[in-house]
Every structure is written in structure tokens, then in C-alpha cells.
Design a protein around this nucleic acid. Structure first.
Length: 276
DNA sequence: ACGGATGTTCGCGC
DNA sequence: CGCGCGAACATCCG
């Protein structure tokens, strides 16, 4: 579930895996994950290089290598980076299922990009810094790095009549929020997700901004603490969210039965009792 | 067994 | 231009 906290964790993990290492080999499978001439650039431009930095903007990972080659990696719905260590006494397969690309490092490890549904993207950029890609420039302030400034958010929300939940998913309004954290933050702030975004008062936007900060930092903390095995193989992990995917259960705040609706084509859980 | 849903983004048509 | 909808794909659940 790669939204901001999960992508931030992926960024930190990649930073640790790649720091001080040299890429020996790069291979990719020809899928639509690679746009333009990126597949060839991925295989040819990366070997011999070392990492300069890993950044995250919203849900986008930005890798910059010494010598001026950048890689943009977006995880889509089901993408993740996993590491395989040579000779590890593991019963896991050497090449993970649905591996679409991998980097072999000088310590013998291999970093695989795994993405069953192929909704992710990898773009290799040589002409300019990777952060100058149009998709990155189009992003609004990052919900974690830049913070959620209530006045600015209020101004952005005041321009549209679409539901507040849909506006929160718009990455040009605020970068990093996806379906789960939009649902959670609106519940936390006690705001009905179907309200027109421009109907929110300054006070409500301030509450929402605090709720967004809260749900993102809480989740990131839990991921970093190892409480959540996002990068591991395990599936069927229990739902750790407060109301996401809990329609039909009692509201943990007021006890009314949680309901669900569809906004912007996305399922949205909400409490009819305490979200106004 | 099969229909319907699933974390994201983009492009099309109105 | 704003918006709503479907498509891209594999897997899981009931």
C-alpha cells in the first residue's frame, strides 16, 4: 500500500542498501513500467555508478547517481523494492516472483523491483536532474517534508466544489496522500468526505491539516519500528487502520455503524454519526 | 466457480 | 477547463 509513509520507508531502505555500493549490472524486463527509452538507459547507464542521493516527493522515489543519471521510481499500487543477498540461507526464491528489473551491487546483493500489476513506473533521466521531470514539478507541497500549512491548503481547497476526499487525492493539492490516509484523516478530523472542498471553514482545514500530519507520522513511525512488514512477503496481515475498510463495524468514536460510499471512483469508509 | 473489489495515475470525452 | 469514468494488470475474497 504505497502511499507517503510506505514510500518514505522505501526511500530510507534504498538509501541504506545503496549507500557506498557500486552497481555492477542492471537488467530489466520489457514491460510498460519503463517509458520511452528508459529500459535501455536503465541497463546501460547505471553499471559502474554509485549513489549520490535518494529523495522522495509525494509518492515518487528519486534516485540520483554520481555522474548525472537519475532514476524516478513510482510504485503504483503494488510495486516494491526487495533485496536478495547472494548465498543467504533463505528458502525464498533467488529471483522474486514478478521481478521486473534488478540491480546487482558490488557486495553481491541484488535489488529487485517487484510489481505484479505493472502499475508502477521507472524513468531514467540523463538530460537534467530527475526532480525536474514534469510529473515531479506538478506536485503540490509534500505532506510530510513541506508540512501541511493550513492557510495554503484552505486556499487550494477553496477553488473547487469536488468532494474534499477527492481533492485530497489530487497530488497537485498535496503530495503523498492516497485513498487510505485520506479516509483516515477525514475521520480523525470529523469531516464528511463528500463535503465540497470549498465548503470547509478555516477551522476545519486546520483540524484536517493536523489530522493528516498525525496519520502520516503515526504510520511512518510504526513502519520504521518494524511493526508493519510492508516490504516483506507476508500477506493477509490484519487491517491496522482505524476506519479504512471497516464499513459495517461500529465507529470507534461514537458507536454508530460505519458506512461506505464511492467518491472519485474510490471506496470511502466514513461515520455518519461523527463526520459532519 | 466466478464476479467484484483492490493501494495509483493517466487519458478520453462531455 | 473541470469532472467522471474506464483502462492498465494480477490476485484475493466471498
Amino acid at each position: 500500500m504505497p502511499e507517503l509513509p510506505e514510500v518514505e520507508h522505501a526511500a530510507r531502505t534504498l538509501r541504506a542498501w545503496l549507500s557506498g555500493r557500486t552497481i555492477q549490472r542492471a537488467r530489466a524486463v520489457d514491460t510498460r513500467i519503463f517509458r520511452g527509452g528508459s529500459l535501455g538507459d536503465f541497463e546501460r547507464s547505471l553499471p559502474g555508478r554509485t549513489l549520490a542521493r535518494v529523495d522522495r516527493r509525494g509518492k515518487y522515489l528519486l534516485l540520483t547517481f554520481e555522474g548525472g543519471v537519475g532514476v524516478m521510481s513510482h510504485l503504483g499500487m503494488t510495486g516494491k523494492w526487495v533485496r536478495r543477498v547472494a548465498g543467504a540461507p533463505s528458502r525464498r526464491r533467488t529471483v522474486p516472483k514478478h521481478s521486473r528489473a534488478h540491480l546487482v551491487l558490488d557486495d553481491g546483493s541484488a535489488l529487485h523491483y517487484v510489481d505484479p500489476r505493472l502499475f508502477g513506473q521507472i524513468v531514467v533521466v540523463r538530460a537534467h536532474p530527475v526532480a525536474e521531470l514534469a510529473v515531479i514539478q506538478a506536485l503540490g507541497p509534500d505532506a510530510l517534508v513541506d508540512g501541511v500549512e493550513p492557510g495554503r491548503l484552505h486556499a487550494a481547497l477553496a477553488r473547487s466544489a469536488r468532494p474534499i476526499k477527492v481533492a485530497l487525492l489530487d497530488q497537485s493539492v498535496l503530495a503523498g496522500i492516497g485513498n487510505i490516509y485520506a479516509t483516515e484523516a477525514l475521520f480523525d478530523a470529523g469531516i464528511d468526505p463528500s463535503r465540497p472542498s470549498r465548503s470547509l471553514t478555516r477551522g476545519e482545514v486546520a483540524r484536517l491539516a493536523e489530522a493528516i500530519r498525525g496519520v502520516l507520522t503515526l504510520s511512518l513511525g510504526r513502519i520504521e519500528a518494524g511493526e508493519i512488514a510492508y516490504l516483506s512477503e507476508g500477506r493477509g496481515v490484519p487491517n491496522r487502520f482505524v476506519i479504512y475498510d471497516r464499513a459495517g463495524s461500529p465507529c470507534p468514536r461514537c458507536g454508530k455503524v460505519l458506512r461506505k460510499t464511492v467518491l472519485g471512483g474510490r471506496t470511502t469508509a466514513f461515520c455518519p454519526g461523527c463526520q459532519r
